[in-house]
């Protein structure tokens, strides 16, 4: 017996070059996954392109002035989106003003051991439930429960602080301020979940060090833990801002759709998504094109905010 007979009749390289069904399937499968992976990016571009292509007539007609005029006149075919852009940004900022202290407070509570974990886990679950409730249900709750409940309180604020322009009109049943409060509730889970993760992932040595230096629990939290988790907390706030900017149903049902900028927060206002939701059904031609122009602005706005959030959160993950 010679070595020659035991050796394989073909080398590995030769066998790999031969036709082989499993290998062919594997190749095809690989390229299919590559194709779909690239597809995720293509979808993003496609969304932008489809918005852009339908918005084009309005962009050509109104140009950049669209952003700074206060007119929405389907009869004369004149459109400007200043009230909507103003309303979107202002309502989101007010929502953040409510949601940041509340959300960070709850996040601190959930990341500390104030209560035994048997009690904390259900509370954390309940907070997650807030995120599971659909926005249209929040909107309906706002109409039937929240606004009737909060209106007397806003009336008091108007009576006492009516001299401040922000509270200068009598609270209307559809208004910016109450809408922003509902938005705040809706973005709470985003802030809580990510801030809590950030606080929990702070190395325990930092806390031990702070205690060792004689800090009380709250001194450790405010001076060591929160600063250490700050990038995560800011990231959560940016993500929440992105959600508030794009939120449609609650705004469409509660904000009142007024096509003018009103400095008073108690007056009806409008947001980009609310206007689209309310007018798209009857829109055609230049009006529809203008609504797509608005959508494009919203898309860019949320894209910038979300990318910024992404950047901040990813930096915090690297530190971790």
């Amino acid at each position: 017996m010679t070595l020659q007979t035991i050796a394989p009749e073909e080398t590995l390289i030769q066998s790999s070059q031969k036709f082989n069904l499993p290998r062919l399937i594997n190749r095809l499968f690989y390229w299919l996954t590559v194709l779909l992976a690239v597809g995720v990016g293509v979808i993003l571009l496609w969304i932008t392109y489809s918005l852009l292509s339908i918005a084009f007539p309005a962009i050509a007609q109104f140009n950049i002035g669209f952003l700074f005029t206060q007119v929405w006149n389907p009869v004369q075919e004149l459109y400007g989106a200043l009230p909507q852009i103003y309303g979107t940004i202002v309502s989101s900022i007010i929502a953040l003003l409510f949601a940041i202290p509340l959300g960070v407070g709850v996040a601190i509570f959930l990341s500390e051991n104030f209560l035994p974990s048997k009690v904390l886990t259900p509370i954390a679950f309940l907070v997650e439930l807030l995120a599971a409730i659909p926005s249209v249900v929040y909107g309906m709750w706002g109409i039937f429960v929240f606004i009737p409940f909060i209106l007397p309180l806003l009336q008091l604020i108007h009576q006492w602080f009516g001299w401040i322009p922000l509270f200068s009109t009598s609270p209307s049943t559809r208004q910016m301020f109450a809408t922003a409060m509902v938005l705040a509730i809706m973005i709470l889970p985003t802030i809580i979940a990510i801030s809590r993760d950030a606080l929990i992932s702070v190395p325990p040595q930092l806390r031990q060090g702070a205690y060792g230096l004689g800090a009380t629990r709250w001194e450790a939290i405010t001076q060591v833990l929160v600063p250490a988790a700050l990038s995560g907390i800011i990231g959560s706030i940016m993500l929440a801002l992105g959600r508030a900017l794009g939120e449609t149903m609650a705004a469409a049902m509660l904000i009142g759709n007024a096509n003018r900028v009103n400095i008073s927060l108690f007056a009806p206002a409008s947001t980009i998504s609310a206007l689209i939701a309310n007018q798209f059904g009857e829109a055609s031609g230049l009006q529809r094109s203008s609504l797509f122009y608005l959508a494009l602005i919203l898309m860019i706005l949320t894209l910038v905010v979300n990318m910024l959030a992404e950047f901040i959160v990813s930096r915090f993950q690297q530190v971790e």
Binding site: V40, L44, S50, L51, F292
Partner: peptide, 27 residues
């Protein structure tokens, strides 16, 4: 490519839902 996909996934999850609706309307 996989970093790019992760980035796109995150951006996509931030796209407002109404824009997804307009996209489907358009296409």
């Amino acid at each position: 490519l996989s970093q790019f996909v992760r980035f796109c996934t995150n951006v996509l999850s931030g796209v407002p839902s109404i824009i997804a609706g307009l996209f489907a309307y358009g296409i």
